[in-house]
Lab assay of single mutants.
Amino acid sequence: GYDPNALYCICRQPHNNRFMICCDRCEEWFHGDCVGISEARGRLLERNGEDYICPNCTI
């Protein structure tokens, strides 16, 4: 089920109804503003069928 207190992202904070994006490599969720991806950019990636790779996986 959905846990509203689950911690995500590099900031280890809950979802808090903020835009989030999922890394296509590790499948962890990240707040867009923490990883520099706007909601519009996230939608563009999705539309173009491009993967989002998080900072942890791009090292």
Rank of each mutant, 00 (worst) to 15 (best):
C57R: 01
L44E: 14
I10H: 13
P14I: 09
M20Y: 03
C23H: 00
G1Y: 14
I10N: 10
C26N: 00
G32K: 04
D33C: 10
G1L: 15
R12C: 04
D24L: 05
E46H: 01
P4Y: 04
C54P: 01
E28Y: 06
R12Q: 05
R12V: 03
R47C: 07
Y2K: 15
E28Q: 05
C57W: 00
I21Q: 05
C26Q: 00
A40Q: 03
I59K: 15
G1P: 07
Y8W: 06
D24G: 14
D33P: 06
P55F: 03
A6S: 02
N17L: 08
D24T: 09
H31M: 01
H31E: 00
R25G: 07
E27R: 08
D3M: 15
G32A: 12
C26I: 02
Y52W: 13
L7F: 11
L7N: 10
D3V: 05
R47V: 15
M20I: 12
I21C: 07
F30Y: 09
G36P: 02
G42D: 09
D24N: 15
C34W: 00
G49H: 13
Q13A: 14
D51L: 03
P14Y: 13
H31K: 00
Y8N: 15
C34F: 00
C9H: 01
R18Y: 10
N5C: 02
N5G: 04
Y52C: 04
R12H: 11
I37W: 12
N5P: 01
E39Q: 08
C11Q: 02
C26M: 00
G42N: 15
L44F: 13
G36V: 05
C26S: 01
L45H: 14
T58I: 13
N17A: 09
D3C: 08
G42T: 11
M20F: 04
R18D: 05
C34P: 01
N56Y: 11
G49F: 04
E50K: 11
I10S: 11
E27Q: 08
I21F: 04
N5F: 05
C23K: 03
R43P: 14
N56W: 10
G32H: 10
V35E: 02
F19R: 06
R47Y: 03
G36T: 11
Y8F: 11
H15N: 12
V35Y: 01
G36F: 04
I53C: 12
G32F: 10
N56H: 08
W29T: 15
R41S: 11
C23D: 02
L44W: 10
P14M: 10
H15V: 13
C9P: 00
R25I: 05
E46R: 11
C57S: 00
F30G: 04
L7D: 02
E27N: 06
E39T: 04
P14H: 09
P14T: 11
I37Y: 13
C23L: 00
Q13H: 05
H31N: 01
R25Q: 14
Y52N: 03
G49P: 10
Y8D: 14
N17K: 11
R41M: 08
G42K: 15
D3F: 11
C11V: 00
V35A: 08
Y2M: 14
A6P: 02
C54F: 00
I10M: 11
Q13W: 03
N16E: 12
C23E: 00
R43A: 14
R18A: 08
D33T: 10
C22Y: 13
L7T: 10
W29H: 09
C23N: 00
C34N: 00
F19W: 10
P55I: 06
R47T: 14
C57I: 00
P14A: 10
C22V: 15
C11A: 01
R25K: 13
T58Y: 03
D51K: 04
I59F: 06
R12G: 15
E27K: 15
C34V: 01
P4V: 05
M20T: 12
R41F: 06
E39S: 08
W29Q: 15
C9M: 02
I10F: 05
M20D: 02
A6D: 02
C34L: 01
I53E: 14
N16P: 04
E39N: 09
F30M: 10
D3L: 09
I37P: 04
L7C: 08
I53S: 11
N56T: 10
C26A: 03
F30S: 04
L7W: 08
R18H: 13
I53A: 12
D33R: 10
W29N: 15
C54A: 01
D3I: 10
G42L: 12
I37Q: 13
P14V: 12
I53P: 02
E46D: 03
D24Q: 00
M20Q: 07
D3R: 08
R47A: 13
G42I: 15
R43N: 12
C26Y: 01
N48S: 15
N17T: 08
I53R: 09
G42M: 13
A6Y: 01
D51F: 05
D33Q: 06
L44N: 13
P14S: 11
P4H: 08
E46L: 07
E27I: 05
R43C: 15
